[in-house]
Design a protein around this nucleic acid. Structure first.
Lengths: 171, 171
DNA sequence: CATTTGCTTCATAACATTGTGAAGATTCAA
DNA sequence: TTGAATCTTCACAATGTTATGAAGCAAATG
């Protein structure tokens, strides 16, 4: 074997990976995550990732640490096996991505709160920061309701495709 | 005058700016946007930004181009005035931020669609990409309803603070 | 307990990004 | 048209980031 099995896969990973990079993920984690989604297997050893992406094991090591830390991959060690295996947390990718976003928002809120503490709430600038913090808190709360909305959207889209009335979701 | 008027402001900009960097915004645009929010004025010339942040006009030039391109700042030229002035688009910062996010999501969707076209929908990997694209489309649609939810959240929070019943928002 | 396998850490070299001063362009005023 | 003010572009130096090979550790096997 000599690397990624198809050129299409390689380009798909590249394309999707760049989009992930654009939203702040470092390069190698982005490529690894893109590969894990686009490739057909659903479990990978570090060696397979290195082989598949044609990069060194060292690069994979850093990348999967990042992805595991941010909750986008989980690491499992099978008993009687020397190496870890990596996979996405869940059948539902959206759940993974959503969950992974929460700590980021929390981080953001903490930063803005710190900034507010520094400049005070009384100035015009402080007020803008307070408004920003409020909005971020709302965003955070809104995320908790997102699974319900996603389920609702899905059933509507499916209904439209199949031609039946959508299932009514609880408010 | 010799730069940023207070050390608190400087540190607030630094803190908030780093949070913005963490979500993928390049360094200098992040600092400029943080400054524009946290500082007390609401209109800035490029020179004021350079002076306030203690960086060169050249650095500001690139940063504001980025911010204007992504819709986080607008550039206006006052008649009879030599330089442009910059400000946030709107009294409501959340609206600015939300709007700024849409093209990013569209970009993302386009990338995943390209990736799907490359690997096909029939493979397990392709299916995961389709699921991802679906979720992104939902996210995009969900964003359009966000103003309503935000208004609802605000009235609830205000009600809680002031001690009256929240205004009922339309479904 | 030695060996093999597989990941991680580390120093480093290649590469990319950032911010600068200097020069160029554009706009208004006179 | 000249001059002054202000922004933009450019080449470059400083700084960060990335990915690598090599060496080191840890876990399982015999």
């Amino acid at each position: 074997m000599h690397g990624m099995s198809s050129d299409s896969l390689f380009r798909a990973v590249e394309r999707f990976g760049q989009a992930l990079e654009g939203s702040g993920m470092p390069r190698m984690p982005a490529r690894v995550f893109a590969y894990v989604l686009a490739e057909d297997s659903d479990r990978y050893t570090a060696a397979q990732l290195a082989e598949g992406l044609q990069v060194s094991p060292a690069a994979i090591s850093g990348a999967v640490r990042y992805l595991v830390d941010t909750g986008l991959l989980i690491k499992e060690r099978a008993p009687g096996r020397r190496g870890d295996i990596f996979r996405v947390l869940d059948g539902d990718i959206w759940a993974t991505i959503t969950t992974a976003r929460k700590p980021m928002i929390d981080n953001f809120i903490a930063a803005v709160d710190d900034a507010i503490a520094l400049v005070g709430e009384e100035t015009p600038g402080g007020q803008r920061l307070v408004e920003t913090a409020d909005f971020l808190r709302f965003t955070r709360a809104d995320l908790d309701d997102l699974p319900r909305r996603w389920a609702s959207y899905r059933s509507e889209v499916r209904a439209r495709k199949v031609g039946v009335a959508p299932v009514r979701t609880p408010r």
